[in-house]
Write a protein that binds this DNA or RNA. Structure first.
Length: 203
DNA sequence: TCATTGATGTTCT
DNA sequence: GAACATCAATGAC
């Protein structure tokens, strides 16, 4: 099976390659999918902002120590976050999926979010609710249903914008490190600033 | 067992 | 732009 990730690449490069991949979630209610337009890299052992900083290992972090492509789910403030493990087993680096451009199942996503428009998937907690992603998906593989990536329908970003990560103050240089990657000009990016391109930033 | 703390989102000003 | 809702994981005891 051909797949997107290559554990020889640095996590921050994998995070950029994820932009434009189609994420698909199958549920009993229906299938939803969307293109990834925003990611953040978490560099594990050396990254003070990562849960796995210093190779800390707790039951919650179990999936981070699995092999690349394992799904790590984290919940806070009643919100669920979706991460994908980026390196081989024992090297707890991961990529946070922060925003999607909806593709199919849009009505179902709007129904789950009880709203329509750009706000449906423009944030890490929002997209998981829109797609019905829960801790049930914890530890499963990103290459197998019900939650998986498609490389068939992938889009290529025209520009990739790097910027500091969101919501991690007081972490020294890691607060300012440009490990957040977005599709330039795409309106579904969270905390968007700047203009929106007519082609939404895709090639 | 209990207190603290967020990789956030919504709402109000 | 700032407050707060709201809860599970974590770590101290």
């Amino acid at each position: 099976m051909s797949f997107w990730f290559n554990t020889d690449l640095p996590t921050e490069e994998l995070a950029q390659q994820l932009l434009g991949c189609l994420l698909i979630k199958e549920t009993e209610e229906g299938v939803t999918s969307g293109w990834i337009v925003e990611t953040e890299a978490y560099l594990g052992e050396m990254d003070q902002a990562a849960h796995s900083f210093g190779l800390r290992k707790t039951p919650r972090l179990e999936a981070m120590y699995q092999s690349a492509g394992t799904i790590y789910i984290y919940q806070m403030h009643t919100h669920t976050m979706l991460n994908i493990v980026a390196k081989e087993a024992g090297d707890p680096q991961g990529i946070l999926i922060r925003a999607l451009e909806p593709h199919s199942g849009v009505e179902l996503m709007e129904q789950r979010r009880n709203m329509s428009g750009l706000g449906v998937t423009s944030g890490p907690g929002k997209l998981t609710k829109a797609m019905g992603i829960t801790r049930e998906d914890y530890g499963t593989s990103i290459s197998e249903p019900p939650l998986y990536l498609s490389s068939d329908q992938r889009r290529i970003p025209k520009n990739i914008i790097a910027s500091p990560r969101i919501g991690i103050p007081n972490k020294g240089k890691w607060t300012d490190e440009p490990l957040r990657f977005t599709v330039g000009g795409n309106p579904y990016v969270s905390r968007k600033k700047g203009t929106v391109d007519l082609d939404l930033g895709w090639q």
